[in-house]
Amino acid sequence: MVIPQRKRPEIALCQMGAAVDVGYAPRTLLPDRLVEEALGRYPRLGFKEAMTSAFCGLLRRNEAAAATSPVVADVGERRLDGFRPIHFCDVIAGAAFDE
């Protein structure tokens, strides 16, 4: 959460909301009234399953997407049989240079 907080306030606020939404930041950071109002306007509608399913779909289309995000790789490891993310040690060992 460090980088967005050094940006403009609206960027930090958006990042904080996303962190609370997915469970990285505690919901108690936000006032109950604000949470209730937001959920009244924008119900979650199965957000947890939809979010993880979206990441699974991304990985089915392009397994290399896991290399761009440890969060996406985590979902693949937990939800996709036989999924194994690309490990950085394998990437560097396979670099096209003689040592």
Rank of each mutant, 00 (worst) to 15 (best):
L30A: 03
G46L: 06
G46P: 05
A18S: 02
K48N: 05
V72G: 13
E37V: 14
T28Y: 07
E36A: 14
R6I: 09
Q15E: 09
R78L: 07
P43V: 05
A25T: 07
C89A: 15
V75F: 06
P4N: 10
R27L: 14
M1W: 01
D81I: 03
A25R: 05
G46W: 15
E63N: 14
A19M: 03
Q5P: 00
L45M: 15
C89S: 15
A50V: 08
V35M: 04
V72Q: 01
P43N: 03
A50S: 09
F55M: 14
G82R: 08
I86R: 06
A96L: 09
Q15I: 02
R79Q: 11
R84I: 06
D21S: 05
V71G: 08
A73F: 04
V2W: 05
A67E: 15
R61A: 11
I92L: 14
D98F: 13
A66P: 11
L13T: 08
A95Y: 09
M1T: 10
G76E: 02
E63T: 13
G76R: 07
L45V: 14
A96R: 15
V91G: 07
P4L: 01
D21G: 07
L30S: 00
I86H: 05
A67C: 12
K48L: 05
G46T: 12
K48R: 14
T68G: 15
S53C: 06
T28K: 15
V91T: 03
G40Q: 10
A65S: 12
L58D: 00
A19R: 11
V72K: 10
A12R: 04
G23H: 00
R44G: 05
G76K: 08
L39H: 06
V75K: 09
E36M: 04
A50T: 04
I3W: 11
R44F: 11
P70T: 15
A64F: 12
L58F: 01
G94V: 00
A65T: 06
L13D: 06
N62F: 00
E37L: 15
G40M: 06
M1F: 09
D90P: 01
G23D: 10
I11Y: 07
P85G: 13
R44P: 01
K7E: 09
C14T: 14
A12I: 00
F83Q: 02
E99D: 12
E63P: 06
I11C: 11
D74F: 05
G82C: 08
P9H: 00
I11F: 00
L34K: 02
V75C: 10
P9T: 08
P43G: 03
P4A: 10
R78H: 11
V2C: 05
D98M: 00
R44W: 04
V71L: 10
R41W: 10
A12K: 12
P85V: 09
K48Y: 02
A25D: 12
A67S: 13
E36G: 04
M1Q: 09
Y42D: 14
V35Y: 04
V22I: 14
E37H: 14
F55L: 10
P70D: 08
R44N: 04
R61I: 09
R41T: 12
A54Y: 02
P85W: 06
R6G: 15
P4Y: 12
F88L: 07
F47H: 15
C89M: 07
E37K: 13
I86L: 10
E36L: 02
D90Y: 03
P85K: 04
C56R: 13
